[in-house]
Design a protein around this nucleic acid. Structure first.
Length: 244
DNA sequence: CTGTGGATTTGCT
DNA sequence: GCAAATCCACAGG
C-alpha cells in the first residue's frame, strides 16, 4: 500500500521522528532501540543529566509498555562534591530512604513528596558514591490511554498534561516507591527500563533547578530547547549549551 | 515518640 | 498568585 505524502502550504513537511512502537520494546535489540548500558550512568550527575535527554523511560504494563521520551532532567550531586549540593537528598549521607542513591548506577530512586506525589530519579556514580538525576518531564510515546486513566484525566488526554512534571510523570506511569524504588533500569527482565532509540540530542537548555531553596542558584536543570512537553513556565531563564 | 518540612499539583481568586 | 492537600523520613528529646 502506497503512503500518501503530507503536503502543507505547498511545502513538504520535514520527516517526522519515527513513532516509538510497542514492538520496539517487545523484541530486544532491534535497530529501533536498545537498552542502555551501565557505564553511561557511572558518571557525575551533571554529565548524565543533559545526555539523558532524548532517551526513553519505559514501564512494562501487562503485555505492552508505557513509555515516554525524557525531555527535562535535574542533576543532584552527592556529598563527595566540592562544593556539596545542599538540595540533594544524599547530602547528609546514606539513610534508609536514600540508600539507592549510594548504590550502583542505573537504578530507580523513587520517593514520596508532599503526600500526594512521587518523584523518580536514576542513580549515578559507581557504588558507594552518591549522585542522581531527577526526571522532570517526558514526551508521551506509547500507552497514552493508560496514562490518562492513571492520571484520572479524560480518555483522549494527550500532550503535556500527561507527563510534564516529576509528580505527573510518576502518576502517568504508575510509579510508586513501594513497587519501583531500587529497580535496575538496565536489566532486560526489569519492568522499568531506560532505552536509547536513535535520537541524539546535541543541544540542551540549562537553567537553575525548580522547587528548591538551597542550591537554587546552580545551573543543574536541563531541557530540550523549545520542547512543548517541558514543565514549568514557557519562558525559561537559561542558556543553551552544546553536548560534546 | 512526636514535630517538622519538602526535588508538587490543583483549584480557586 | 496562593494555599490546601496529605505522606513519610528524619532529627531531637
Amino acid at each position: 500500500m502506497e503512503k500518501s505524502t503530507q503536503v502543507k502550504g505547498g511545502r513538504r513537511e520535514a520527516a517526522p521522528i519515527p513513532p516509538f512502537e510497542q514492538e520496539t520494546l517487545e523484541g530486544w535489540g532491534t535497530p529501533r532501540g536498545r537498552l542502555m548500558a551501565r557505564p553511561f550512568f557511572e558518571a557525575a550527575p551533571e554529565w548524565v543529566a543533559p545526555r539523558l535527554l532524548g532517551k526513553v523511560l519505559a514501564r512494562r504494563s501487562g503485555r505492552g509498555w508505557l513509555a515516554g521520551r525524557i525531555v527535562e532532567t535535574e542533576a543532584y550531586l552527592g556529598p563527595h562534591n566540592d562544593p556539596p549540593d545542599p538540595a540533594a537528598h544524599s547530602h547528609r549521607g546514606p539513610t534508609p530512604r536514600n540508600l539507592v542513591i549510594f548504590g550502583p548506577a542505573g537504578h530507580a530512586y523513587v520517593y514520596a513528596i508532599y503526600g500526594r506525589s512521587y518523584c523518580m530519579n536514576i542513580s549515578c556514580e559507581t557504588e558507594g558514591k552518591a549522585g542522581c538525576v531527577l526526571l522532570r518531564a517526558l514526551e508521551p510515546l506509547t500507552g497514552m490511554e493508560e496514562m490518562a486513566r492513571n492520571r484520572e484525566l479524560r480518555q483522549d488526554a494527550a500532550g503535556r498534561e500527561l507527563t510534564s512534571g516529576p509528580g505527573r510523570l510518576c502518576q502517568a506511569l504508575g510509579l510508586t516507591r513501594a513497587i519501583h524504588n531500587g529497580l535496575d533500569l538496565l536489566d532486560p527482565g526489569s519492568p522499568l527500563q531506560v532505552w536509547e532509540c536513535g535520537i541524539v540530542v546535541l543541544e540542551a537548555l540549562v537553567t537553575p533547578r525548580i522547587g528548591i531553596r538551597e542550591g537554587a542558584d546552580r545551573m543543574l536543570r536541563f531541557a530540550l530547547p523549545g520542547c512543548e512537553y517541558v514543565s514549568g513556565p514557557k519562558r525559561l531563564i537559561g542558556k543553551r549549551v552544546f553536548l560534546g
